[in-house]
Amino acid sequence: MTAMSDGRTVIITGAGQGLGREHALEFGRQGGRVVVNDVGDAAEEVAAQIRAAGGTAIAFAADVSDWQQAEALVQKAIAEFGTLHALVNNAGINRDRMLVGMSEDEWDLVLKVDLKGHFAPMRHAAAYWRDQSKQGTPVQARIVNTSSGAGLMGSVGQGNYAAAKAGIAALTQVAAVEFARYGITVNAIAPSARTPMTETVFAEQMRAPETGFDAMHPGNVSPLVVWLASAEAGDVTGRVFEIEGGTVSVADGWQHGPRIEKDARWDPAELGAPLRALLNRAPAPAPVYGA
């Protein structure tokens, strides 16, 4: 059986630890040519592990929230392997704090790393694929972004992180439509897994005693990412998948709901009763995490 990523070049950001590390290792096992990105030395350690197992990988240290460094990452992959097939945007941080006590720096840093850190490499990779498409080269490109349940439902004490991850979900939907003409699919995942960012939250959720299955192991998420980045997934785009352990679901985002109408401008004083009736017809919103 041919490996799912055989011959495909993939960039994985934030791949020095946690989810990104597991993604990189799985792409290596699946025959991918992996560009392991992170800041510092961790990326080289992961790339070396892939090579030691017989895979193909290089490391490239870069801050993907920096425009020039993100471009350099994309160009390095192309220069090293001759082409690029997939980008997995995984890099992210959190700075948890209640909104009333959050500093400007805590807000700006999370939005920069998590949201701009998705947009910058995505934009440079998409520009390369657009040029390939315009030159008549067939493109089967894939982008997999990393949102979060916090971005889909909200999370108390994580207003900056939730805003960034919600932005990633919306960015995914827009990019899926804009990039479709060039042969690029764009999807996102919202994973639940034990990583350096969540190890305290999921510390008690370990292996199931009856099976030994560790539902919170970050490696459980990687098969979905590998499939979404494969040539086989060319008909799937603009979707957000939630995944925890062996459970995968498709998140259903904002939809147009019930409405009230009149053929004139509303007066504020007359809106109360019809709005309350409207809210009674609408489904209740999903609870915010931690509420």
Rank of each mutant, 00 (worst) to 15 (best):
R207L: 01
T211A: 08
N220W: 05
R207M: 01
T200A: 07
G234D: 13
P223F: 03
F202K: 14
A203T: 06
I260A: 03
G246R: 12
D214S: 02
M216G: 04
D214V: 03
E232H: 07
V250E: 14
P218A: 13
T198A: 11
P209L: 02
D252Y: 09
L228S: 09
R239F: 04
T237Q: 13
M206A: 03
T211V: 02
W227C: 03
R239Y: 08
V240G: 09
D214E: 08
I260W: 07
I260C: 03
G245A: 10
V248R: 12
P209E: 04
G234M: 11
E244S: 14
Q255E: 10
A229M: 10
I243A: 12
V226N: 11
G238S: 05
A208L: 08
R259C: 03
E232Q: 11
T200E: 00
E204Q: 05
S222N: 12
T198Q: 06
T237L: 12
F241H: 15
G246A: 10
Q255D: 06
A215L: 10
G238M: 13
T237G: 13
A264H: 04
H256W: 10
T200C: 00
L224H: 12
H217K: 15
A215M: 12
W254V: 15
S249K: 15
A233L: 09
R239C: 05
D214F: 00
P258Q: 09
Q205V: 07
T247N: 12
L228F: 06
E204H: 01
G238C: 13
G212F: 05
L228I: 07
S230D: 06
A203F: 02
P258N: 11
F213S: 00
T198R: 13
A231M: 05
T198I: 07
K262A: 13
Q205A: 11
E199V: 10
V201L: 14
A233C: 10
